[in-house]
């Protein structure tokens, strides 16, 4: 039902003790470089390096990591197929004029464009996974405070964060119970079970919210969670690794220029 929350993995990954700012800089820098690149190669390079870091430094289970890519890649393949068919260009391999004003074609340019977008998704996804698999949300809250994000947003984020875990437990319990009673055996049955599940989740979250108000009022809540924020010091090793990774990737972006695959 639910993919294992990446948060659980992040809480016990091998890079947990590295400074949060450094990890965020790695991920965000990689995303930016992928977007700045105009060739298919740099995103692939970034995907390869970060996948290596996730599997060997953070020691994430390879199967879990691969499963994360299934859904987005399915969507990516569909959309990339669309892009290849419509974007046109030089060297036409195949062409079909459906309507006078609309035609589908496969060309050298469109294949290059499609592969480029696909590689950029790979690079971007691995950078995103790097952040989510190595940095627990609690550390990100601390960093957001340092960045002077409005207090009200951080409060809201923390409460949503908390509620998600309360709800998740309940939803999984109810869902398992429904499956055991053949609640998802037919389409009609599934719609009904799904509705009961959502309804129960809404009421449960409402109750949880009311309990939370009372519990916090009783502890003199005035609108600010006092959380002990701790961030690990910046160490020389990770800092050098970050610097090397970003400058190497930037060099790859610059030198690969507009090179295409075919």
């Amino acid at each position: 039902m639910f993919e294992e929350l990446l948060e659980d993995i992040a809480q016990k990954n091998g890079l947990r003790e590295v400074n949060t700012n450094l990890k965020l800089a790695t991920g965000l820098g990689a995303i930016l470089l992928c977007l700045l690149s105009s060739s298919y190669f740099p995103p692939l390079f970034i995907a390869l390096v970060l996948t290596g870091a996730i599997l060997f430094l953070a020691r994430v289970d390879p199967k879990t990591y691969a499963e994360l890519f299934i859904v987005p890649l399915w969507f990516a393949v569909m959309s990339v197929a669309g892009i290849i068919l419509i974007s046109g260009g030089q060297d036409i391999f195949w062409k079909w004029d459906i309507l006078p004003s609309f035609s589908l074609s496969i060309t050298r340019d469109s294949i290059n464009q499609g592969i480029f977008v696909f590689c950029r998704v790979l690079g971007g996804m691995s950078a995103l996974c790097f952040i989510s698999l190595t940095t627990p949300m609690t550390n990100i809250f601390t960093v957001l405070r340092q960045w002077r994000i409005p207090e009200i947003i951080i409060e809201l984020m923390m409460i949503i964060y908390r509620t998600i875990f309360i709800l998740m437990d309940q939803v999984v319990q109810i869902y398992t119970a429904q499956v055991m009673r053949l609640g998802y055996s037919t389409v009609k049955e599934s719609i009904h079970s799904c509705a009961t599940l959502c309804g129960a989740a809404f009421i449960a979250s409402w109750d949880a919210g009311e309990d939370l108000v009372q519990a916090m009022d009783a502890r003199c809540y005035t609108g600010k969670f006092a959380v002990l924020g701790e961030n690990r010091p910046v160490e020389r090793g990770p800092l050098l690794a970050l610097f090397a990774f970003l400058s190497l990737s930037a060099a790859v972006v610059i030198f690969s220029g507009n090179s295409t695959i075919i």
């Binding site: 409060e155 809201l156 923390m158 409460i159 949503i160 908390r162 509620t163 998600i164 309360i166 709800l167 998740m168 939803v171 989740a201 809404f202 979250s205 409402w206 949880a208 919210g209 009311e210 939370l212 108000v213 916090m216 609108g223």
Partner: peptide
């Protein structure tokens, strides 16, 4: 505020 948080949790789920 808590109510909004709960709504957010609900949307997430």
């Amino acid at each position: 505020l808590p109510l909004l948080g709960v709504t957010g949790g609900f949307i997430f789920i």
